[in-house]
Amino acid sequence: MTDVLENSRVRAVVDPERGARLTSLRIDGHEVLGAASAPGVDPAIADGIFAMVPWAGRVRDGVVVADGVAHQLPQADGPNALHGLGHVRPWRRSGEGTYAVDLGGPWPTQGIATLRYALLDAGVRIELTWDDGTDRPCSIGLHPWFRRRLDTGGELEADLRPTTMVERGADGLPTGELVAARPGPWDDCFTLAADPVLTWSDALHLTLRSSADWWVVYDEPGDTICVEPQTTPPDAFGHPTLHPADGWPHTVWLEITA
Rank of each mutant, 00 (worst) to 15 (best):
P137C: 03
F146Y: 14
A35K: 13
V59A: 03
L103E: 05
G133W: 08
A113R: 09
R147D: 03
G104W: 02
L73I: 02
P162N: 09
Q75A: 08
D77N: 12
G133C: 06
D77H: 13
G97D: 04
T109S: 12
A113N: 09
R89K: 11
D67M: 08
R136P: 03
E157I: 15
D131T: 07
P54N: 01
C138E: 04
P108N: 10
D121R: 11
D102G: 09
G123Q: 11
A38Y: 06
G40S: 00
S37C: 11
P108L: 14
R148D: 07
P39Q: 08
E127Y: 09
T109A: 11
V101D: 01
G84M: 02
L82C: 02
G68Y: 12
G97L: 06
R136G: 11
G154L: 07
F50G: 00
L128S: 09
L128W: 12
A122P: 06
P108C: 13
D67G: 06
G97F: 08
L128Q: 14
A35D: 07
A76I: 04
A51W: 04
Y99G: 01
T152Y: 14
A36F: 13
T134E: 11
P90R: 10
A113L: 12
R149Y: 07
V88D: 07
R89P: 01
G48R: 05
R147I: 08
W55A: 01
D47Q: 14
D135V: 07
A70V: 07
T152L: 12
P144Q: 09
T109K: 12
A46S: 13
W55D: 01
C138A: 12
A70M: 07
G68Q: 12
D159Y: 11
D159W: 09
G105Q: 15
D67K: 11
P79V: 13
H143R: 06
R148S: 05
V124G: 02
P144D: 07
G153Q: 08
T114L: 05
I45R: 10
G97R: 05
L82G: 00
L128R: 10
G97V: 06
N80F: 03
R60I: 01
P108G: 08
G68R: 09
C138G: 05
T129F: 08
L103Q: 09
P108D: 10
G141R: 01
G141Y: 00
R93Q: 13
L120M: 15
R60N: 01
L120H: 13
